[in-house]
């Protein structure tokens, strides 16, 4: 190796890891503290931690359409990378991770770190976005559930018409899916 020089040379890496959108604040904070712990334990220097927030994925990953992106930059040896990735595999919240080597032969002692840059600030509170549509709903398979909801809503008023209800709900059975499909097409057009 070229380590014979007096200055200890390290490499600079960047890592992006992607978390499930439903990850709790505590688990995200726990993971990020684990990351800084690992980097410190392996003799590296964390130089940047950036939270990109919740972004849309280019394709669904594990049925999730959005995910939290967190970006790290650090200087150190290659063992940090393998140790970090081992930790990412242990956390169920991590959907994806990727490490890229930026530079070889970085003088680690000369690296200056702005403490504000490596402070992990939690991404904004989950906005009340539209709930992720389940696959069944997308395919229109849970019309049965929608119809059940519909009758449940409309039954409360008709307690005394016990006898007629069976026939009435039969005759109206096609109505709820229509309503549902209207609602869906409106959503799409937005």
């Amino acid at each position: 190796m070229i380590q014979s020089t007096s200055v200890k040379l390290a490499r600079e890496y960047e890592t992006i890891y992607v978390l499930r959108p439903d990850a709790t604040k505590e688990s995200v904070a726990r993971l990020s503290s684990r990351v800084s712990e690992v980097v410190a334990r392996e003799g590296g220097t964390l130089t940047l931690v950036e939270s990109w927030g919740r972004r849309a994925l280019a394709f669904p990953v594990g049925k999730h359409r959005r995910a939290y992106y967190i970006y790290l930059k650090y200087v150190g040896g290659g063992r940090i990378v393998s140790e970090l990735e081992r930790n990412f595999r242990m956390f169920d919240e991590v959907l994806k991770y990727q490490t890229v080597k930026l530079r070889d032969e970085v003088d680690q002692t000369g690296v200056t770190v702005n403490p504000a840059d490596i402070e992990f600030e939690m991404v904004e509170a989950p906005p009340d976005e539209e709930p992720e549509e389940s696959l069944a709903a997308q395919l229109g398979l849970d019309e049965a559930a929608q119809a059940r909801d519909w009758t449940a809503r409309h039954e409360g008023t008709g307690e005394e018409h016990e006898g007629g209800r069976g026939r009435r709900s039969d005759s109206r059975a096609p109505a709820p899916p229509e309503v549902a499909s209207d609602a869906k097409s409106e959503e799409k057009s937005e």
Binding site: I16, V18, L57, A58, F59, L95, K96, Y97, Q98
Partner: peptide, 14 residues
């Protein structure tokens, strides 16, 4: 290819 692997770009038309 890197962007695809971290789901920033699609592999195929979605």
């Amino acid at each position: 290819k890197r962007a695809r692997s971290i789901a920033l770009l699609p592999f195929t038309a979605n």
